[in-house]
Computed example of a mutant assay.
Amino acid sequence: METNATPVSATSVGLRYGLLTGLISVIISFGLFAASMEQSPLRFVTFLVLIVGIVLAMRHFKEHNYGFMSFGQGLGIGTMISAVVGALSAVFTYVYLNIIDTDAVGRMMEKARADMEAKGGLSDEQIDQGMAMAGKFMNGPMMVVIVLVTSIITGVLLSLIISAFVKHSKPEFE
């Protein structure tokens, strides 16, 4: 592994790769929203983009820090990336659903209702209650918070796993 003589900080790598990963995720999300495929299995492509972004960022950090990265540094990089991706995704989702395509929330709510009715076992009153609760989370600042928190939690969990494999700590007695 070739190393660079200029070490980089975990924060700078996390921010750089967070912005790149976030922009790619937003572009993919825009495509899914525009095609009315926001609830298709393709939405998990952004999850794969996050994984690739975290792995590439950790490899970049190691490459520029003489081949070393501690578990904590890897966790910090992944958490920073997921926070930036979450913030970009939350802002994009809010702007898209409240300004660009205000009918998207209605489509998602209709699909959720149809899924609940098809599943069976719920009365109309229970479905109405569920839809009322979902409506509170689909509008406004609560949606932004949910997108951000979900992204950070997912990123931390992924970073724990990825860091365990990518880390290469400095020897203690050198």
Rank of each mutant, 00 (worst) to 15 (best):
N4L: 03
P7F: 01
V8A: 13
V8L: 13
S9C: 10
T11M: 15
G14Q: 07
G14I: 02
G22P: 01
G22R: 03
I24K: 08
S25C: 05
I28V: 15
S29N: 06
L32T: 00
A34I: 04
A34L: 06
S36G: 09
Q39N: 14
R43Y: 12
T46C: 02
T46F: 09
F47H: 00
F47A: 03
L48W: 00
V49M: 03
I54L: 02
L56N: 07
A57L: 11
M58E: 13
N65W: 05
G67A: 06
F68Y: 12
M69E: 14
Q73R: 05
G74C: 05
L75K: 07
A83W: 06
V84H: 02
V84L: 09
V84T: 09
V85T: 01
V85M: 05
G86I: 05
A87C: 10
A87D: 00
V91K: 00
F92G: 06
V95C: 04
Y96K: 06
Y96P: 13
L97F: 15
L97K: 01
I99R: 09
D103E: 02
V105M: 15
M109K: 09
M109C: 10
A112I: 09
A112C: 04
R113Q: 13
D115N: 11
M116N: 06
E117K: 08
G120V: 07
D128E: 12
Q129V: 12
Q129I: 12
G130P: 07
A134C: 03
A134P: 01
F137L: 12
N139V: 10
G140Q: 09
P141E: 08
M142A: 10
V145I: 12
V147H: 07
V147F: 06
L148A: 03
V149N: 03
T150C: 00
I153L: 15
I153N: 08
L160W: 15
I161K: 07
I161W: 00
I161S: 10
V166I: 13
E172K: 09
E174G: 15
